[in-house]
Amino acid sequence: MEYTEFTDEALLAQIVEQDRLALECLYQRYSTRVFSLSYRMLSDQGASEEVTQDVFLNVWRRASSYKTGRGKFTTWLFGIAHHRTIDELRKRTRGKQRSVENVDDFLNLESADIQPADAAVANSEYATVRDALLDLPDAQRAVIEMSYFGGFTQAEIAQKLDQPLGTVKTRMRLGLKKLRAALATKLRGPEL
């Protein structure tokens, strides 16, 4: 059986056994996603390469910490990638006032610049998630995008939107739950 036919979890089990080909296969599957996320948030190719490198080295070193049955592999992987990117973003902007105008970039979901290059993807994950995201009330989508892509904390968002912190927390929670529920309904495949 070719590695390309292995599930993510099976590849991860191989990585625990120090199988370099398994890591290479996972890298082929997800490096573009990880790099794209980081590049979108940092707008810096060199830093995004460093982040992507760190993420896959972490997969190599910490494969055994992933627990099957505790969420999807992609959730684990993208969680690591996002956390690492946020860390880099906050390190760069610490002590600096970030402009709220940048938030408009995140809300511009229907603009041509975020169309994926891969046409096949456009018909599957991208379109599905985009639709689910667009279905959210504007207020919930805004706080999710400001935090996820902009790296703003809940307290910063509350200040920028002039809303109580409790309202921001409630919107994030409702928005993420709805997003997850919408995807569970729309996606039929085992993986996002």
């Binding site: 996002h82 975020i114 993807v121 994950e125 998630v129 995008e145 997850r180």
Partner: peptide, 12 residues
């Protein structure tokens, strides 16, 4: 899981 899905809205 909801948060991770946002990765798919990013242009590749």
């Amino acid at each position: 899981e909801g948060a991770a899905s946002l990765v798919f809205t990013v242009p590749t």
